[in-house]
């Protein structure tokens, strides 16, 4: 296992921090009484941020519930990594088995709350020839920050208006739980595809266990 310098330092500093569980209060965060229709405990659809799609319509991420999702945070004017990420999403789509492909949704969520308006995203959709299987969203600062935090995506806006950001492709199962993440640009897409096939085979979503999911940056 790779030693993680920053984490090690932080662990020394915090010395009692980040305990995995609490033997005194087992299952204190149990969700037996979760009302029907509520999102599962790990569903990122619990995030209550509102988004707008490239038609200008209000959109909640929970509208993606029910089918697996390939989710990437990007910005339309990005000249380097984002086009590669979108190309990888398209490759992933082509590589999917024919019976799985129509079930999968592809979502792009912009970091750029100012320039990536509905019209810009619509132009992006047209220029990349993204069909109805793709959802393009922009939101407000809080929504972007909180979604990025949930996905483990680091980002910051540079003085020139561009964004520095982690390159992450996230696979969500039908419940909106993170089933897999590919970090970086060079990794193969095999694991992402497997996660999608698994997620598509289990439309309930809850079956995708924590063991299958991989944490983001750390």
């Amino acid at each position: 296992m790779k030693k993680n310098c920053a984490l090690l330092l932080a662990t020394i500093v915090l010395n009692q921090g980040m305990r995995a569980g609490d033997p005194l209060r087992p299952n204190h965060r149990c969700c037996e009484e979760q009302p029907a229709g509520a999102y599962s405990a790990n569903s990122i659809y619990q995030l209550d941020a509102r988004w707008t799609n490239d038609d200008g319509a209000s959109f909640a991420l929970g509208q993606l519930r029910g089918r697996p999702v390939v989710l990437v945070m990007f910005y339309a004017s990005c000249g380097y990594a984002c086009p590669l990420l979108v190309a990888d999403m398209a490759r992933l789509r082509e590589a999917l088995p024919a019976n799985v492909r129509p079930q999968v949704q592809f979502a792009l969520v912009s970091f750029d709350v100012v320039r990536d308006t509905a019209a810009s995203l619509k132009a992006y959709r047209d220029s990349r020839r993204l069909d109805a299987q793709w959802t393009l969203l922009h939101g407000d600062n809080n929504g972007v920050k909180e979604l990025a935090a949930l996905l483990g995506v680091n980002f910051r806006q540079e003085p020139d208006g561009s964004f520095s950001h982690s390159n992450v492709i996230t696979i969500l199962n039908a419940e909106g739980e993170i089933a897999h993440q590919r970090l970086g640009l060079q990794g193969p897409l095999d694991d992402s595809m497997k996660a999608l096939v698994t997620a598509a085979a289990r439309p309930g979503g809850a079956g995708a266990s924590a063991q299958e999911s991989s944490p983001a940056i750390q």
């Binding site: 993680n4 310098c5 920053a6 984490l7 330092l9 932080a10 500093v13 915090l14 010395n15 009692q16 921090g17 980040m18 909180e146 935090a149 949930l150 483990g152 944490p215 983001a216 940056i217 750390q218």
Partner: peptide, 15 residues
């Protein structure tokens, strides 16, 4: 180092 190692859901006894 601490900030870089944190996830947004983390909680610790000194944070």
């Amino acid at each position: 180092a601490l900030r870089s190692s944190l996830r947004a859901s983390n909680t610790t006894s000194s944070l």
